[in-house]
Design a binder for these strands. Structure first.
Lengths: 195, 195
DNA sequence: GTCTATATTACGATAGAC
DNA sequence: GTCTATCGTAATATAGAC
């Protein structure tokens, strides 16, 4: 079987510590000194596990992107009526965002100063385009309001979804599915009472 | 009248340059060297106009907050049916956000590393609470869907509004009111076609 | 108001012992 | 795998000339 749990860091366990600090202080606002304090080991020990700060960022945003892109290949995203696929992708995106909260949070805050950051931005744009295509198909089916601009709708929809990282804090027994439903309901049916 | 336009920097004109760089590189990712290159003057000349990097940030977020809070005191925000006041505040918030785009962008990216940043976060929370109170009143009037959680709705609504800073780029002759209408329409009536 | 030059501190990363 | 010590660089900020 596997060896017993070791009391030392791996790149993965170190990553979970680093990501927390990155989120609290911002990536650029975090020094290796900050990371070493948070991990309880020296700066040079960190370099034993990873090549540097940027590798930690790369691992974090990759994990987030993998989770998001995987949604687009799920059966609910590739079969059925377009509007239902959009709703499915929206709901699942919320669930991935909440399930991988720290990693997606970091992804959404990337600005583009390094090669890693620019790569992450590029992949995010790719994801957005694929969702925009889904919305376009739903509009062509006549299932979205005729007066909405699809590019704008996509941006507002994912602006709303992504804003979850700004305030959501996980708590035991939290029902991500319920929150995802609320988001989808607001996006597709709006806030207004319909008497 | 006033004196002729001087070919030198004031704190205000320097601010407009600095804010652009802050947005592109992030506040922590921007050095005084970056600012001096962008402004076309030396680092030490910048210190002649402002006390340092943080004063520039303070001026920027103050300007954004002043604009946003002013909306809450406009007649449309204090008179009439609550749901209409919420729609008014939403629409006007979008307009202020677009009109003061770089300053609001910076405000929304503040993380809390310095005293200035923590103050900005606190004032943002205050703004959010005042809007949440408006939504609460609209719900009490029965003008919002009965099944929505007000705190959640406020967060999603302003998550959607605030996400505009992530992609909107001003262009000549742009109609902010039209974009504001689209945002309000999506938030209150949703994306779905109603046959 | 702007400059060059520099003080001082903090940062990312490495060397080498244990 | 972790440490202390340190290198080289880049950061904020100041001094003082023009």
């Amino acid at each position: 079987m596997t060896t017993v749990r070791r009391d030392t860091y791996t790149p993965e366990t170190l990553l979970s510590v680093a990501v927390q600090v990155f989120i609290e202080r911002g990536y650029d606002g975090t020094s290796m000194e900050h990371l070493s304090k948070a991990a309880g080991i020296s700066k040079s020990s960190i370099y034993h596990h990873v090549a540097g700060k940027e590798e930690l960022l790369l691992r974090a945003v990759s994990r987030a992107l993998d989770g998001l892109f995987a949604v687009l290949d799920e059966p609910g995203a590739v079969r059925g009526r377009a509007v239902e696929r959009v709703e499915y992708v929206t709901r699942r995106t919320v669930e991935v965002l909440l399930g991988e909260l720290p990693y997606v949070t970091l992804l959404l805050r990337v600005r583009g100063n390094t090669r890693t950051e620019r790569w992450a931005l590029e992949r995010r744009r790719e994801f957005d385009h694929r969702v925009a295509d889904l919305l376009k198909a739903a509009a062509a089916d006549g299932d979205l309001r005729a007066d909405v601009d699809i590019r704008l709708a996509t941006r507002l929809l994912f602006g709303m979804v992504n804003s979850l990282v700004e305030w959501y804090r996980p708590h035991p027994g939290a029902d991500h599915g319920q929150l995802a439903d609320a988001v989808v309901h607001m996006a597709f049916d709006g806030l207004r009472a319909t008497p």
